[in-house]
Design a protein around this nucleic acid. Structure first.
Length: 784
RNA sequence: GAGCCCGUGGUCUAGCGGUUAUGACGCCAGCCUUACACGCUGGAUAUCCCCGGUUCGAAUCCGGGCGGGCUCACCA
């Protein structure tokens, strides 16, 4: 017998059972069509947040659905381990350590975090293949990342070069834009006197006067009447240096004086201009971020130099005025130090050259929702520089190259995996010594080959059969990084073929107030906290309901409460069915009543709708249909309609009802299984002959059966009439079980259905007349 | 500023050319009907953001506003 209530103990029982049996282990290719899922490896922070709960539920729905559709589902779990956040945590705990020891601690820490997260994921009922896990810190993973870079190097896609990059002087590392965040602050806009070709006074506006030593040009808008005549002429800066005046449409006439100086580099726009107009690049910051080559201000930090140089200009009468200006500066998200642009020798990947090819390859992938591709297009269109793939950090994949300090030649490492500690010495053709690269790779370099990793590239036999992966599910906010870089590396760089057939985008979870969840706002909800009050199956239903594709949705307690009560409904209805299936042998009855056929047709419609929804990853649509079908048609109506037959003496009629109860509930459970597997598994084993070792999670997905369209429509007026009688009982303050005499105008129903009405609504007799009901008196007396 | 998404009862949501405009939560009334009071039966609540247009007919299509969200660029 089903227990009185459904809850966590039952869920845990099945989680352990699935694990014990290895239910979801991929046992290699077989006669079934494979379906592989390129699941996001979460960053190993140790905590599972609501975003994870939502997106991993999404992936799990797909995996479970596809299994039931008969695919050989390959659903491995990866872990993204390397990067700044881990280093920061470990550094905080152990302080600065020698390179190798530090890496070891990082590895230990990651392993602990993985254990924590895995435990949480199991509690949510996720069904990845725990036998096929990968971690980006593994030697094997390193080897493949490095190999993929060698391949790209041979195609001249990866190179060492000198380019402006984001630079954190505190951490002494190049940074990607994604490692930065914005800080609002107030600064001063300084108006400073320069000298024109005729010795006339020209005013430029700048927030970074200390960079004037790196000034390489003065610019104005081509249609600015004030300055038009300066084009190509020489201007003398306040420091006495001569630079050219250049017209450029990106200059804002209205801003400051309409005249500006270009320094290498004060901001991003300077870089654009420097490259556009092929200006010389002067570097006036040394490796510690202090000024050099200025003479008087050498060794000062920019901030101090700024004060000094302003003082100097003031004294010389070259400072015209200062205005307060609100400004947004980029700071390194880990240490909050303002980021500078610096010309630096780094490793790059040539994404600028391949923008169009990336966009083209993205078109070969099916996007869910379709508009998702626009995120990638927009990003590709805005890419201006190559991707800096090197980081001056420790916990990352080593860059498998050598370079010559003398002539800057580069060469691949001879054997992989390559580690600095064990790198053999090499000599350069120029006679110089080759240095093994000390930097490590950006984490996106690691994660942009996951489709290759899971396929088993390059050594596992038959890896080509698992590439492209069937599906890449991921968050919409990392289209510009993860999806973009994966197409570029796995697709263009290594295989020349798209990395996946389809991509499914999910949005983010907001706090119930509609704002982002953040620790500082104190509005964070944790899935593990929710699990104390709600079953995992309810949390998963919440995910299905929230998952309007690629759309952010606030977390909703209403949804999860509703999900919980729905589970309760499913449970109790199943208990009722279980009680009434006693003595039923499972065989098909001689004939079905019209009401039975109505139920079967309603089931057909639910199967069709859910199948269609699941095929398009519209889990909320499927879930909604399951609510409608089960709660209203099956429980509220069919169960009630059938009760008198269950308690009655007509054995044939009872058997027909039993058959329909059995079929409808079983099919419904299968439709619900991908979303809420635990409850379905338990009921399956209790009611539907689930034997030891069986699982509903591999049951074939239901198909619509014999159609009863005509009966379905015939029953509608009957349902309306019953609803009217129920209403009448309600407003007469009668219990629904009360026996009545019905007065009604002529009722247009077939005798069979009219009989049903009489039995269902407990009507003793029907008189013709104005619509009304009367309780059968003595019944009331009896109950008193 | 640019691109994308969105604006439907108090709240959230479905619908995307003709519906008495879906459902959930909440609210109100009645009902302990042998699965479920975490329930059942009903009820009230909507100028479908605004203004134009297309159409016999628009929440639904088009144009323009206004408002919100996300991503990007934010300026010397």
């Amino acid at each position: 017998m089903l227990a009185k209530r459904f809850g966590t103990e039952i869920e845990e029982k099945w989680q352990e059972e699935w694990d014990r049996r290895g239910t979801y282990t991929f046992n290699g290719l077989d006669e079934r069509e494979p379906y592989s899922i390129d699941t996001p490896p979460p960053f190993t922070s140790g905590e599972l947040h609501m975003g994870h709960a939502l997106s991993y539920s999404y992936f799990d729905f797909v995996a479970r659905y596809k299994r039931m559709r008969g695919y050989n589902v390959f659903y491995p779990q990866g872990w993204d381990t390397q990067g700044f956040p881990t280093e920061t945590k470990v550094e905080k705990k152990y302080g600065r350590l020698p390179r190798e020891e530090f890496r070891k601690k990082c590895e230990e820490w990651s392993a602990q975090m993985i254990d924590k997260m895995k435990e949480s994921m199991i509690k949510l009922g996720f069904s990845p293949d725990w036998k096929h896990q990968y971690r980006t810190l593994d030697k094997e993973y390193h080897r493949k990342v490095q190999l993929s870079l060698h391949i790209m190097y041979d195609k001249e896609m990866v190179y060492r070069g000198e380019h402006p990059v984001f630079w954190c002087y505190k951490c002494r590392s190049a940074l990607a834009k994604s490692d930065t965040e914005d800080l609002e602050r107030e600064t001063l806009l300084n108006h400073i006197k320069f000298t024109g070709p005729e010795g006339e006074e020209l005013i430029i506006a700048t927030t970074r006067p200390e960079l004037m030593y790196a000034c390489v040009a003065v610019m104005f808008h081509p249609e600015d009447e004030r300055y038009k005549h300066l084009e190509g002429k020489e201007i003398t800066t306040a420091l006495g240096k001569k630079v050219k005046a250049i017209a450029d449409k990106d200059v804002d006439k209205e801003y400051g004086s309409g005249l500006l100086m270009v320094c290498t580099f004060g901001d991003k726009q300077d870089i654009v201009w420097a490259y556009r107009h092929k200006l010389p690049i002067l570097s006036i910051l040394d490796e510690n971020g202090k000024l050099k080559g200025t003479g008087e201000f050498d060794g000062l930090k920019p901030k101090d130099a700024k004060e000094k140089i302003i003082e100097k200009f003031k004294e010389e009468g070259k400072l015209v005025k200062q205005e307060k200006l609100p400004q947004v500066v980029k700071v390194h998200d880990r240490c909050k130090t303002p980021v500078e642009y610096a010309l630096s020798r780094q490793w790059f990947a040539d994404i600028t050259k391949h923008k169009e090819e990336i966009k083209q390859m993205a078109r070969k992938v099916k996007w869910f929702p379709e508009f998702g591709i626009s995120y990638l297009d927009n990003w590709a269109d805005s890419v201006e520089w190559d991707w800096v793939i090197s980081r001056q950090r420790h916990f990352g994949t080593p860059i498998p190259f050598y370079y010559c300090e003398k002539c800057n030649a580069t060469e691949k490492a001879d054997s992989l995996p390559f580690y600095l500690e064990s790198a053999p010495e090499k000599e350069c053709r120029c006679g110089g010594k080759m240095k093994p690269e000390e930097s490590v790779l950006d984490c996106w370099v690691d994660s942009s080959i996951t489709p290759l990793i899971i396929a088993g590239w390059p050594d596992r036999k038959g890896w080509e059969k698992l590439y492209p992966a069937s599906l890449r599910p991921q968050g919409v906010e990392i289209v510009r990084t993860w999806a973009f870089y994966t197409i570029y590396r796995s697709g263009l760089g290594v295989t020349g073929e798209k990395p996946w057939d389809s991509i499914l985008l999910n949005g983010n979870v907001l706090a119930p107030d509609g704002r982002k969840m953040s620790k500082s706002l104190g509005n964070v909800i944790s899935p593990m906290e929710l699990l104390k009050e709600y079953p995992a199956d309810a949390l998963r239903q919440w995910a299905a309901l929230s998952g309007a594709m690629a759309k952010d949705r606030p977390f909703s307690y209403e949804d999860i409460k509703f999900a919980k009560s729905f589970l309760n409904k499913v449970w109790n209805a199943s208990r009722f069915v279980q009680g009434n299936l006693e003595g039923y042998d499972g065989s098909k009855p001689q004939k079905l009543g019209t009401v039975d056929k109505w139920m079967m047709e309603s089931l057909n419609l639910a199967i069709e709708e859910c199948t269609d929804a699941m095929e398009g990853f519209e889990f909320n649509r499927s879930m909604r249909k399951l609510h409608d079908f089960f709660w209203h048609d099956f429980c509220d109506d069919y169960l009630e309609y059938v009760k008198y037959r269950m308690y009655g003496s007509d054995a044939e009629s009872k058997k027909a009802a039993q058959y329909v109860l059995h079929e409808a509930l079983f099919s419904f459970l299968k439709l619900l299984t991908p979303i809420s597997p635990h409850i379905c598994e338990e009921i399956y084993h209790e009611l539907f002959g689930g034997k030891e070792g069986n699982t509903i999670t591999f049951a074939p997905w239901p198909k619509a059966g014999e159609r009863f369209r005509e009966e379905y429509e015939k029953v509608e007026p009957m349902r309306t009439l019953i609803s009217k009688i129920r209403q009448e009982k309600s407003s007469s303050q009668l219990s629904q079980g009360a026996e009545i005499v019905l007065t009604s105008p002529r009722i247009e129903l077939e005798p069979e259905l009219l009989d049903e009405v009489k039995n269902i609504a407990r009507i003793k007799e029907i008189n013709e007349g104005e619509f009304g009901i009367k309780a059968v008196e003595d019944k009331k007396e009896e109950s008193k």
